[in-house]
Design a protein around this nucleic acid. Structure first.
Lengths: 356, 356
DNA sequence: CTGAAAGCGCTTACAG
DNA sequence: CTGAAAGCGCTTACAG
């Protein structure tokens, strides 16, 4: 009920005013043994009265714990804004972190403002780790030969890989939230096969992203088992480029011809949206002549007309699980992998029977 | 080029190995005067070799600067994921913060898990300020009699209000990024008036949000000047609730009747989307019988069919400007207000002539 | 130009 | 149960 500090209230202030030592104050405030209950009560009362808060820097310095977790989003900010995935997974992460009074340090970096061949985000990871600014890190968008784990390992910084392949082993200081792309691939390819599609196409996200490469491999494998053929293309996850990839894929092909894909799978929702528009420009009807399926569901797929069928994953749950894994690591528990629940197919108008 | 620290390298390590004092090392590392150039060079070389990084906690403790800025998003996480506004403004903020090596501390809190009448986010602001965890804060979603400024003022924590009314004065330790809703209201109401609309409706966001209240007042004022009438409703920014508000607004009204609004303005894109679907369910054609305009533009408005006309603001710029204002405050400059550029109307199919 | 020392606000063995 | 002291890793007057 005081009118506010004219400067920070410290445990020294509390100790002085109570005529006891800083140590006793600290024990009392932290619920540690070593003080009588009456002393503890007096300390807590005065702390409340004076509006004492522990200095996070002082605590971090003496405990080597910052109570913060870091995430770097290395993606075109414009895309990040349009793709609901990121905010949803962040919200899931935050729900768990907040419940444990942990803070999220977020960095959004635009890869396009790059000069050299080096990823600019590496410097941020190195700095955060070197400065001891965070207690752990969650890694998004893993790529083949990802350079980030080595940097973090060097500093003994705990981390979780979100969306690692199911065969990724946990390390000495890192767990993985694994995603089985095989199940997703089977779901979507089966759905197309059932509807009579025999020649399909897959427009993946950026080459190099592990989960996109695995998706591609799994789609190829599952389609081959069912005697289907797959045309491949890749794009940068944006709607515009997804449209371009679609045009490159379909240009010059005659509907009904043997090499004409009767269904296209897109690696994310934005590319599916762009693809849908491109198909319209090519005068191809969806789903009349071409079916469209997105690998991720979102409001965009629901809003589109026709609505876009999609593999729906529980994205906030992805976030919650990875945060949980990281908190365990930070608490000193043994690393472990956790497998994310597979997505289910949301059937919408863009998915139809092959009519050829 | 070392193989990595088996523990943190400190300035004491550097001082010992070079046979000089910690003070000299510190001066050398920070580009301060007080060391010879040759000593400085030796220190920098060794620091590089050993992979030294300053401890952020130690620095924060001795400088009372955390190099972090805080933001609390107190909104339904699901909505946040769907609405591109938040990620876009965060990306803009990050662009400026990152360029100044500042970090963003983000908290996403779900207001629905509330128990009492008190806003749960207040505790986070108080804690961040009390613990000295951030150097400044950006406030989103200002409400009437917003309790947050008082909390921050009490701790002398610098802050910027994003989207304050143009008449909000800067305080001793806070600047404002103001938005002129009058210009937006004039733009949209004029556009409707020109197209022959005389009775319109406005579905605002949550009552209590300052910018929604101001939007309402400005729309009413401008419409009155033009001899138009306005029916009012409010909703919670979600698509579903925007649909419900629309139904409540239009139910029982006969197209063409004097009290039938021929155009509806929505406070954000999600409500406009939901409203559009609701109008469809009411068998009202857009823009044949009702025109629709959203106060914020996004990919959702572009994707919708019919496309939704919208007031397009430069959202990342909003973020960049507010971050800039906050960095100035943190650097000790005088508070000031900055007025955001007014939005321009993106005309799309949902905006048509009044046919009654 | 350089070093010894105090201080930032906490935590944590270590003696009484 | 309580206090005096050292330490976390920096910065910054203050003497030489």
């Amino acid at each position: 009920m005081d009118s506010g500090p004219a400067g920070k209230v410290t445990i020294s202030d509390l100790a002085r005013r109570l005529g006891i030592s800083k140590a006793s104050v600290s024990y009392a405030l932290n619920g540690q043994p070593g003080v009588s209950e009456s002393t503890r009560a007096r300390v807590l009362a005065l702390a409340g009265e004076l509006g004492w808060y522990p200095s996070s820097s002082a605590r971090a310095l003496s405990q080597s714990r910052t109570e913060a977790v870091g995430i770097v989003l290395y993606r075109d900010p414009e895309q990040i804004g349009e793709e609901p995935f990121y905010m949803s997974v962040l919200a899931g992460i935050e729900a768990v972190l907040g419940a444990h009074d942990m803070n999220l340090l977020l960095r959004i970096m635009d890869p396009r403002t790059v000069a050299g061949p080096q990823r600019r985000d590496l410097a941020v990871y190195e700095r955060w780790a070197g400065e001891g600014r965070v207690d752990g890190i969650i890694l998004f968008d893993l790529v083949r030969d990802d350079p980030r784990p080595a940097v973090l390992d060097r500093f003994r910084m705990p981390y979780v890989r979100l969306g690692a392949g199911i065969d990724t082993p946990p390390g000495p200081r890192n767990s993985n939230l694994t995603v089985s792309q095989a199940l997703g691939a089977a779901t979507v390819v089966d759905a197309l096969h059932e509807r009579g599609h025999r020649r399909i196409a897959f427009v993946s996200g950026p080459v190099g992203l592990v989960h996109e490469e695995v998706k591609t491999a799994e789609i190829l494998a599952h389609a081959a088992r069912l005697g289907m053929t797959v045309a491949l293309s890749s794009s940068d996850y944006s709607a515009d480029d997804g449209g371009l990839a679609t045009i490159a894929l379909m240009a010059g092909l005659v509907p009904g011809a043997p090499e004409f894909p009767t269904a296209i799978i897109y690696g994310n929702d934005l590319m599916a949206i762009g693809g849908l528009q491109a198909l319209g420009r090519l005068n191809l009807s969806v789903p009349g002549q071409v079916s469209v399926v997105s690998w991720d569901d979102s409001i965009l797929c629901r809003l589109s007309s026709p609505g876009i069928a999609a593999i729906a994953r529980n994205v906030p749950e992805l976030g919650r699980n990875s945060a949980q894994l990281l908190l365990e690591l930070i608490a000193g528990h043994a690393p472990r992998n956790l497998e994310a629940a597979p997505g289910v197919l949301s059937v919408r108008e863009s998915l139809g029977r092959n009519t050829f």
